[in-house]
């Protein structure tokens, strides 16, 4: 699992985790379709990051990109229903 800014390829990656405590930002990213279980691909890195999520395209800054964690392969635990419930 790596943060998106370290990904060099333009292939789609699976989003595993969003590392932020900021609720407003979490909701904005969600509204753009950036949430665990979806695929994201980087189109461009300068002057801002441009990413595509499905048919949605968005521009993000470096700080935002760094809080998106992705993997190359789809991981089963990216699915919310398998999150183990603690007693």
């Amino acid at each position: 699992m790596n943060d998106l800014s370290t990904i060099r390829s333009s292939d789609p990656h699976w989003i595993v985790h969003l590392e932020t405590q900021d609720d407003a930002m979490l909701r904005k990213l969600t509204a753009l379709g950036i949430l665990p279980g979806n695929q994201i691909a980087i189109e461009q890195r300068f002057p801002s990051y441009i990413v595509t999520i499905g048919r949605t395209r968005a521009a993000l800054d470096r700080e935002t990109v760094q809080c998106i964690f992705v993997t190359r392969e789809q991981r089963t635990d990216a699915n919310s229903n398998s999150d183990s419930a603690m007693p």
């Binding site: 609720d23 909701r27 949430l35 979806n38 919310s80 999150d83 419930a85 603690m86």
Partner: peptide, 18 residues
């Protein structure tokens, strides 16, 4: 919240998205 590992609002958003 104690029973789930991720923030409640994220879980809700995720269920809706799915």
């Amino acid at each position: 919240q104690a029973q789930i590992s991720r923030p409640i609002s994220l879980e809700i958003a995720q269920a809706r998205q799915e």
